[in-house]
């Protein structure tokens, strides 16, 4: 058990942070929702009712989709695009999908390589892109859920104001959907860009996200 906690400390720590933050969001979101209910002259709802509301679902989903979009783009764009000096980038002359040998695929696979790296057929193609396939699917699924939950929440507000509900297609071109979407995307793109650029000149001793402290600024693709 101690060995498990040590060997998985990073994923456990982020899992605990996630659950704590989500619980905090649920509680604060419930308080905020009820404050609005009172302001609108409506009754307060229980926490259970809030957690099964479209308002809670859309708030969670809109943040989830943007995180997976961020990593999907980061994974894909770093295959072809480089940044001189950044540990997040490959060396400048390695842009692209790289050779079978470099990637240890097919007959270049090692004895302890994953089974699907060795076959050299469609399984290798699938496994070669499995990270972007899963992250991309999670992005699309959570963005779809955001659109449905956001649509339901939007129509509930309209009904309370004696306005006709709109269709899902209309919601997809509505400012509410795009304001929720883009306010999340802009911060993700800024954060990734910041990481790529700042890691050229700044260091964190001991972090694999940084170059070694004494590594020259001009060296690319070196992780500490």
């Amino acid at each position: 058990m101690r060995r498990f906690l040590h060997e998985s400390a990073l994923s456990i720590a982020f899992g605990v942070l996630f659950v704590g933050a989500l619980a905090g969001q649920a509680f604060a979101g419930w308080q905020q929702f009820n404050a609005q209910q009172v302001a609108d002259g409506l009754g307060e709802v229980t926490l259970g009712r809030y957690l099964t509301s479209a308002d809670f679902a859309v708030d969670v989903a809109e943040n989830w989709q943007s995180e997976w979009l961020q990593f999907s783009l980061f994974i894909l764009m770093t295959v072809w695009l480089v940044q001189k000096g950044s540990p997040e980038s490959k060396e400048l002359d390695r842009a692209g999908a790289e050779s079978m040998k470099d990637q240890k695929i097919g007959r270049y696979a090692r004895r302890d390589s994953p089974a699907w790296a060795k076959t050299g057929d469609w399984r290798t193609t699938v496994f070669s892109n499995s990270l972007i396939l899963v992250m991309g699917t999670l992005f699309l699924a959570s963005w779809l859920i955001q659109s449905i939950a956001g649509w339901a929440a939007f129509n509930q507000d309209r009904l309370q104001q004696q306005q006709d509900p709109i269709g899902w297609g209309s919601y997809l071109v509505n400012a509410d959907f795009w304001a929720r979407t883009l306010q999340n995307w802009q911060s993700e793109f800024l954060a990734v860009g910041t990481m790529v650029v700042f890691s050229v000149y700044l260091r964190q001793r001991g972090s694999p996200e940084s170059k070694p402290v004494g590594e020259p600024h001009t060296n690319t693709g070196v992780e500490g």
């Binding site: 060995r3 498990f4 060997e7 998985s8 994923s11 456990i12 899992g15 099964t52 509301s53 479209a54 809670f56 679902a57 859309v58 969670v60 989903a61 989830w64 999670l138 699924a141 959570s142 859920i145 449905i148 939950a149 649509w151 339901a152 929440a153 509930q156």
Partner: peptide, 30 residues
């Protein structure tokens, strides 16, 4: 090795459960 598999499945199944929950909640309110 078993620990790595456990964390992989915890994340993957946890996310799938979260997405399924939000999907059901969303569709119920449509």
């Amino acid at each position: 090795v078993a620990g790595m598999r456990v964390m992989f499945l915890v994340y993957l199944l946890g996310i799938a459960a979260g997405l399924a929950y939000m999907f059901v909640v969303a569709v119920r309110h449509v």
